[in-house]
Structure formats: structure tokens, C-alpha cells
Design a binder for these strands. Structure first.
Length: 543
RNA sequence: GUCCCCAUAGUUCAACGGAUAGAACAGCGGAUUCCUAAUCCGCAGAUGAAGGUUCGAUUCCUUCUGGGGAUACCA
């Protein structure tokens, strides 16, 4: 990276000047005429050296004399160091890019687990869930490409209370088909999708369970409903190209005794007690939180209990780290989970929670609340059908996970051209076309030329922008804000479109410059393609 | 009440504590004998309020206001 190269030059220079303990300074791409790159180092040194920043900057600029690479080093304003680079630097970077087409990919050596999209399998995936599914998938892609061996896992709650409510709700719908009126239970699922499932079931078993109900019939309905819902989920994820390495079912933890083992150990450690007929875990012993129920007074295990067993299971699978991606409603879950891990001597650093805010939907100009239970929601499938996979994925990836997003459904479904994904894709397609055009004129792009004529603002901007790619990816590893990637691609595309409209790229009268510009186009295209592929969005040759 | 996120242009979003707060859409005005006008160029338009820290604050701290979430024997 060019930035790192300047950073090293600066550090060496400071060393030469006898300055020790160099603070963590910045190299930035400044606005307008403040050079190609600039640094704030002088401000940070000013306190220590008890000099005004301007003088320090002047001093550094005198010592940093590398005429081969810097055309000019300027001290500006209160003490910024502004670097004007020689074309040679750009040329070398482009050459490197060309020699290593996917230079941003790092070998995967850190084994991590990502859990995301663990929605309750009690109905169709909603648009709200779509945000998390896309978010998780893209984040995994970025971790994977920057040196992590990522496993994607989805956890399905198929053992607890809601699956029973779901089963019973299905049974009611099934009976309704035979004109038997039963009511959907309190807290049950009222969405119409269960009617369709009931119809399918009716075809299969006819009137076998009409007016009949016992625990084994309940098990049958629970299982049938779960499988049906899960099939639907898989299809939805498939349509968005979201795949999981592991599908982890809550029930397996009950069946293989993991949950009982957790209970036994907690009891042995004297970390549980009974109260009001329920079994509680002493969360307050570890965190400033209320104690929590593990087993309800009606005998059902809580989500919390099975989730403890689940995370112990994760830990025993020897990942370097486990990441849980949850919606904002899970904030309360964090400290409880850490308390439980603590009880089993699992370090907090093993588990990282990544929370994202909700999606608010706007329909017919009104903001609506979604509820799977009430049967009042918009499905993700409808959205994908209406606008396509690329636009859906790009749209969700585009928002800062920490902010609530307002999603205007009508707008999204109709005016798909408003989605900036097309802007980025168009830049890619345009470049493909340039190469087609060059080939038609028999200008071959075989090897990268020595860059000598790329000195316009547009060309330098493009190279600098390409150079930012790795930096953007790495910063996402730290703050998990994947919207930086879409921002970046839009910016790169914008620089390209601007360059394109000002310069003729394929020019038969100037083969030399043409080849250099083709090299630049190749690098832009390569980066666009790389970024889009991390987003799971296609990079079309034609539009 | 307490805790967690958020508040930027008419709208939807940007901006590792840096110089003149960027885009997109909407609005207004331009550009195509030449590689795709799904584009480009120009105009107009914004940091919720009040303090504080700093050479410098949209960014950090405090208070307030407004929105969302949590505070379940829901998951």
C-alpha cells in the first residue's frame, strides 16, 4: 500500500532525526490541493518536543529528501505535511497490482465460527431477517478473504416452547380444513402460510389426525411444521446465495445430554437454586444482572439454558473465536451469556457479540411493525423476487449496522434503478466494453507497460482509490461496519466514471498511452470485481 | 426509572479527532459526429440543543430533547 510506504519513510526519517517514541500518526488522502497524501504527525509531536507543529513539519520535510519518489513535500496550514508523489510510485503500485491480481487475499490461518440468521423456524423469513442474513454473509466473506478460516453456522430453536405452539397452530389450521373450529393458541402463529402447510399435510395424511390430539400427535405436528418452515428458510437463503457450513439444531443438545450435563455441573458448583417452581442460575454472582431462569415451572427449558450448552459446544470445537450476530433485541443476552461462560471457565474473549439495529418498514407511506406471530410481515422472498438478488444484497449491506434503517417497500420494489448497485456494476461493465473495443482495434493488452503518461488528476485519483481497498477491508475486521465496502465501491466507481468521461482510453494514434490506461482500467475492474464478490453481488460484463 | 444503539441536505445514507462536512434520489441548468447517457459537468441545500476537553469536534465527555431496543418462567 502506498500509505504504508509513506509511513515507513516517515518513521525512518524521524529515527534519523533522533526522535523516539513515535506516536500513532495518520496518513490521509486530503482534499483538493493538499497533496496526494498528507500526515498529521507534526501535531502529535508538538507537545512532546515543545515546539510548534509548523516548525516540526518543516524540519521533517527537510530530512525527508527522496527526490526519486516525492516531487514535492509541503508544509501547509498549522502543520500538515503534504506529499506530492512522483508518477513512479503509482507506476510501481499498478505493476504490483497487475502481478498479483488478488493481492488482497490472505491465507486463512485463524479458525473462527460465525453464527448468524438464527431466526426461529416458525414462519417465512422476513425482510427484517434479511438484513442479518446478508450482513452475516458479507462479514464472513470479508473475514475469509483477510486471513480467517470461517465457518458459517445457523442455530435452529426446535426444542422449546414455540415449536410446540407452532405445531399446535398447524394442527388448528389442519382441522379448520375439515370445518372443525379450533382457536389458535395464545402466543401461537396466525400467519396464512400455515394454511398452505396444512393443505399440503392434508394431501399427505388425509383425515388421520382430525379431532385427535395427544403427545405423540403433537410431536408429529411439531416435527412436520418445523421441517416445512425450515425448507422454506433454506429456499429463501438459497435465492440470496447464502449458504451455511453447519446447521445446528437446538434439539440435538437436549437429545445428546449436553443440556443435562450443563445443569448437573451448575448444580455441583452451587450456581443454581429453585424458586417459585423454576430453576434459576445465579447470574448476579458474575455480572451486575438479575438471575435468570433455566427451567420454567412448567418444565420447559429456556432458550438461555440450551444456549449455554450450545456455546460450550462451540468452545469445545476449538475455534479461535466465535462470533454471534444478533439483532438489537439481544442486548440483554450478552452479560448473561458471559456470566455462563465464566461459570465454565471459558474466557470472555472467546465469544464476540455483533449486534445490529432493526429494519423499520414503510408501506403506503406508513411505518409498520412486523410480527411473525401476528402474521403481519413482508417476506424476504417477495423482495428478492421483485428487485433481484444483487439489489437486495447490496441494499442491506449499505447501511451502518448500528443504525436503524427505514425501508420503504414500495419504493424498493418499484424503482430498482435507485439502487447504487447499478452504478457500481455499470462501471465494471463499461470496462469490459473498453477491452472489447481495444481488441477490435487490435490493441492487445498483454503485459503491463511502464507507466509514464498517467499524470492527470483523474488517473492519480483512481490509483490512490484502488490502493485503499485493503485498508477498507481491514478496518471492517475491527468495527464490523460492512457499509464501508459499499461506500468504497461507489467512490471507486465514481472516480472511474469521471475519468472515463474526460479521457479517451482506446486511441489508435497513441498506443503507448492507450496501453497504460488499459492497465489502469484492468486494475479498477479487478478491484470492483473483488469488492462485488465479497458482497455476493455479480459483476456483469454487459448491462 | 435504569441500561444499550441512534440523531447530519426535502429524503435515504457517508465522513480512523483534521484543512472548504461527501454521495445518491428528488429540484434547477448544461453535455452525446468519438470506448454503453444505467454516465458526466454545474447550481441550490445539512451536523437536534446547551456546555466541556483540544492547536482543531459531526466524531470524545456531561446534561437535555427526540426515535428504537432491553429491563420475561419470549427467543
Amino acid at each position: 500500500m502506498i500509505k504504508n510506504w509513506i509511513r515507513e519513510k516517515l518513521i525512518k526519517t524521524l529515527d534519523k532525526m533522533g526522535i523516539e517514541e513515535i506516536p500513532d500518526f495518520k496518513i490521509e488522502i486530503p482534499l483538493n490541493n493538499f497533496g496526494d497524501y498528507s500526515s498529521n504527525i507534526a501535531f502529535l509531536l508538538s507537545k512532546k518536543l515543545k515546539q510548534n507543529p509548523r516548525n516540526i513539519a518543516l524540519d521533517i520535510s527537510k530530512h525527508l529528501d527522496d527526490k526519486d519518489y516525492f516531487n514535492k513535500i509541503e508544509v501547509a496550514g498549522p502543520g500538515f505535511l503534504n506529499f506530492f508523489l512522483n508518477e513512479k510510485v503509482y507506476s510501481e503500485f499498478l505493476f504490483f497490482e497487475y502481478e498479483n491480481p488478488q493481492y488482497w487475499k490472505k491465507a486463512s490461518n485463524i479458525r473462527v465460527l460465525f453464527e448468524f440468521a438464527s431466526v426461529n423456524p416458525t414462519g417465512p423469513i422476513t425482510i427484517g431477517h434479511g438484513r442479518q442474513a446478508v450482513y452475516g454473509d458479507v462479514l464472513c466473506n470479508i473475514f475469509q478473504t483477510r486471513g480467517h478460516s470461517v465457518e458459517r453456522e445457523i442455530y435452529l430453536n426446535n426444542a422449546g416452547r414455540q415449536i410446540r405452539l407452532l405445531g399446535r397452530s398447524l394442527w388448528v389450521r389442519y382441522n379448520n380444513l375439515f370445518k372443525n373450529n379450533y382457536d389458535i393458541p395464545e402466543g401461537g402463529y396466525k400467519g396464512e402460510y400455515l394454511i398452505q402447510t396444512a393443505e399440503k399435510l392434508k394431501d399427505e395424511i388425509k383425515d388421520k389426525f382430525v379431532d385427535k390430539w395427544d403427545s405423540s400427535i403433537a410431536d408429529f405436528f411439531n416435527q412436520y411444521a418445523f421441517e416445512a418452515m425450515f425448507e422454506g428458510m433454506k429456499e429463501t437463503f438459497d435465492n440470496l446465495s447464502i449458504k451455511f457450513n453447519n446447521i445446528f439444531k437446538e434439539k440435538s443438545l437436549v437429545d445428546d445430554g449436553s443440556v443435562d450435563k450443563v445443569l448437573k455441573e451448575l448444580k455441583e458448583k452451587n450456581l443454581t437454586y429453585e424458586s417459585e417452581g423454576a430453576l434459576w442460575f445465579k447470574v448476579s454472582k458474575f455480572k451486575d444482572e438479575k438471575d435468570k431462569v433455566l427451567i420454567r415451572s412448567d418444565g420447559y427449558y429456556t432458550y438461555y439454558l440450551t444456549d449455554i450448552a450450545y456455546h460450550i459446544n462451540k468452545y469445545n470445537r476449538n475455534y479461535e473465536k466465535a462470533y454471534d450476530i444478533f439483532g438489537a433485541d439481544h442486548v440483554g443476552h450478552l452479560d448473561r451469556m458471559y456470566a455462563a461462560l465464566d461459570a465454565f471457565d471459558i474466557p470472555e474473549s472467546f465469544l464476540i457479540f455483533i449486534l445490529h439495529q432493526y429494519v423499520n418498514l414503510k408501506k403506503n407511506g406508513e411505518i409498520i411493525k412486523m410480527s411473525t406471530r401476528a402474521g403481519n410481515f413482508e417476506t424476504l422472498d417477495d423482495l428478492v423476487t421483485a428487485v433481484g438478488k444483487d439489489a437486495t444484497r447490496y441494499f442491506f449491506a449499505r447501511f451502518d449496522p448500528d443504525t436503524q434503517m427505514l425501508f420503504d417497500i414500495d419504493l424498493a420494489k418499484q424503482k430498482t434503478n435507485e439502487n447504487p448497485v447499478f452504478y457500481v456494476q455499470y462501471a465494471h461493465a463499461r470496462i469490459s466494453n473498453i477491452f472489447k473495443n481495444a481488441a477490435e482495434k487490435n490493441i492487445l493488452f498483454d503485459e503491463i507497460p511502464v507507466i509514464k503518461n498517467l499524470s492527470s488528476e483523474e488517473e492519480k485519483n483512481l490509483i490512490k482509490e484502488i490502493d485503499r481497498f485493503e485498508e477498507i477491508l481491514d478496518s471492517i475486521l475491527i468495527d464490523y461496519k460492512i457499509n464501508k465496502l459499499t461506500n468504497y465501491l461507489e467512490s471507486l466507481a465514481s472516480f472511474f466514471h469521471s475519468f472515463y468521461s474526460k479521457h479517451i482510453i482506446v486511441d489508435e494514434n497513441d498506443i503507448k498511452t492507450t496501453k497504460e490506461r488499459l492497465a489502469l482500467c484492468k486494475a479498477v475492474q479487478n478491484t470492483l470485481k473483488g469488492g462485488l464478490s465479497l458482497l455476493g453481488v455479480s459483476a456483469p460484463e454487459n448491462m
